[in-house]
Design a protein around this nucleic acid. Structure first.
Lengths: 195, 195
DNA sequence: CGCAACCTTCCTACTAGTAGGTAGACAAAA
DNA sequence: TTTTGTCTACCTACTAGTAGGAAGGTTGCG
């Protein structure tokens, strides 16, 4: 049997899904308290302040994401497949509603009123993700798998925007299938243009 | 002299900019009260409940947007120029920080915890925007200005996602210029593929 | 006209409930 | 014994929302 998560991990897990649902101002210690059967004060023992809790949460999220992307790049030979796996990961998250939005994308929309300690970590994750996409695109170009119309840096930003925008459309229109309907062709186009 | 806006319009104006900054849960009647020098109770006189205020606000926003897009289609001959004006509108909003995010995109990210009366209006605006983009693309194809790889409906969804995703990237990375860096090429590509 | 009834807008003063956060007691583990 | 985790009980500030009334304009009517 597993499920031996520590209390602080449980707190972060619940907070994460609450943030995905409603953002930084969309949840409270009371919500977490109710969800995991612990008093508010006990949460303050683990995370004295809300800003700190979310900062730790974003740290953990970014670290997991980076590890996932890193191992994806190591284990998967083709940059084209790396991109496909990345997109499929989000497709399944959104379609089975397990995590229908990116934590950092959610927080990025509220950037203007986020505590500094949170905002800077969100920015860092955006930079990391853009860098990973850039490196995958570059590798793909070197291997003759992709031919890009733009510089890899620009194309990576365009791809990242598509992914986040597609999440937003899926939410806004209440149609999970929209995610892959938007992102799928965008990725396919990179592979198709191989003259 | 102008600036003879009614109190309820002032309330909506302030609420709009507060929502753009922090979303539905990111503002309170007290914030509006402080911004326009009126008591909280007076705001409740105009808008009894918060959900109603935001519903009216989204209605107004969607109506203005629809009128703007409609007149753009009537006054501007080329579908290619219509698209360009649309994108440039947002570029200037973002670059001079006058309204650096779409109200409905902001609310769409919080969709899961929005009151029904607000959520349905946000969905409606997304549908309207997608429909407008679709019709512009269709007209462009008919006039031989665009040649799309996908059906106009799909291409419109991809374009809408790019626009929203680009707004998010500009925010998340704190770089207003990113908006046009992402959306510009996306639009240019539609025009370029005219064999 | 004069005057009352009404309506709109705003106010002060309040409610019940929730926000994030604190102090200190207690039990179990190291 | 000290540390760790949890608890009860509490605090202050703020949340959306309500009650009741004052000021001023508008309308209808004798």
């Amino acid at each position: 049997m597993k499920s031996m998560a520590s209390t602080s991990d449980k707190i972060l897990d619940v907070a994460e899904s609450l943030i995905v649902a409603g953002g930084y101002n969309g949840f409270s210690y009371a919500d977490i308290s109710a969800a995991i059967g612990i008093r508010k004060a006990s949460i303050h023992h683990h995370f004295p302040a809300k800003a700190e809790l979310v900062a730790v949460l974003v740290n953990r999220y970014a670290k997991q994401a980076e590890a996932g992307l890193q191992s994806l790049r190591e284990r998967t030979a083709s940059p084209a497949d790396q991109l496909q796996f990345y997109v499929d990961y989000w497709r399944s998250c959104i379609e089975n509603a397990s995590q229908p939005f990116c934590v950092c994308a959610m927080l990025a929309s509220e950037m203007q009123m986020l505590p500094d300690e949170v905002a800077s970590r969100v920015r860092a994750h955006f930079r990391n993700l853009a860098a990973w996409l850039t490196s995958v695109l570059k590798a793909g170009v070197e291997q003759g798998l992709f031919r890009l119309d733009r510089r890899p840096e620009e194309q990576a930003q365009m791809l990242m925007a598509s992914v986040h925008g597609a999440m937003l459309s899926a939410r806004g229109l209440g149609d999970p299938g929209l995610f892959i309907a938007v992102v799928g062709p965008e990725v396919a186009e990179l592979r198709a243009i191989t003259p």
